Simulated assay, not measured.
Amino acid sequence: MNLAAIVKLSVAMAIFGSIGFFTIHTGVPAVELVFIRCIFATLFLSGMWFVTGGHKAESWNKKEVLQTCLCGVFLVLNWVFLFKAFEEMSISITISIYNLAPIFVLLLGTLFLKEKMTVQGLLATIVCFIGSILIVGIDSFQSIDQMMDSGLIWALLSALCYALTMITSKTIQNLSPYSMTFIQTAIGILMLLPFCDFTVFNGLSTSNWIYIVGTGLIHTGFVYYLFFDSVRSLPTFLVSVLTFVDPVVAILLDIVILSFSPTLLQALGILLIFGSIYYTVRPRKQLTGDG
């Protein structure tokens, strides 16, 4: 095992786990915050791309560039929906639903990539659905308005878009991670520019700006650099396990700093979701390791 890569990915996931805490302290709506994030990511990671000399050895392929552009659309929508969910729900509940993404990948793979749906995958999907109902509350499902106000739809859309990001990026082999992210975040700038209300940046406090810059530089630039620098040196099963550091940190921060106190049913829902996801990923890890 590459110990340095393990440490880098663990640190990246731990830092990313605090993004919800940073987001709610920026004082900026989702669209504008993602726009700023895309600018920071484009500048930081393209700079790293040039500093490391990766741009000189880049292998461009028209099909992969177009595929990366589509992937970028899903990635940016994923961020917007996630931040909108943070505006409506607690970080713990949002992150729990957001981490349904692996289940969505399983379902999308079955529908569009002709991958076989296993019994364990079907069971995990059902249990995750039950868990989602428990953590959001059965009362939130009585009307469309209540569901929208609860933030559930935003969190589900965020998870779905993240799953679509993973699905569309699966066959990209030649483009480097830096060039992929540069294209994706540049697409994000172009996508969101017409929808940005720049007056929201008027009157922000120094504290707000610290959190905004932190979200851009730390959670996007630095975290993605650590992620890209480590993920290709580690086996898939280990990456899957280490990504659980993200939600654990997010939920701990929500409980310890923001005083979130889940009800018994919400706690059960969170356990059902993460237990099902782990159950889904674990057999694949064993098969990967043996194969």
Rank of each mutant, 00 (worst) to 15 (best):
W49Q: 01
K56V: 08
K56L: 11
E58M: 12
S59T: 15
K62W: 07
Q67N: 14
C69I: 13
G72M: 09
G72C: 12
V73H: 00
L77K: 02
W79S: 06
V80P: 01
F81H: 02
F81W: 08
L82S: 05
K84Q: 09
S90T: 11
Y98P: 01
L100H: 00
A101F: 13
A101T: 05
P102D: 10
F104H: 00
F104T: 01
V105I: 15
V105K: 03
L106W: 03
L107S: 02
L111W: 14
K114D: 14
K114Y: 12
V119F: 11
L122Y: 14
A124M: 10
T125A: 13
G131V: 09
G137N: 04
I138K: 06
I138S: 03
D139Y: 05
D139P: 02
S143M: 09
S150F: 05
G151N: 04
L152V: 14
L152D: 01
S158D: 05
A159F: 00
A159P: 02
A159Q: 02
T165S: 07
T165D: 07
I167P: 08
I172T: 11
N174G: 04
P177S: 10
P177E: 09
T181V: 10
T185V: 08
G188W: 08
L190Y: 05
M191V: 08
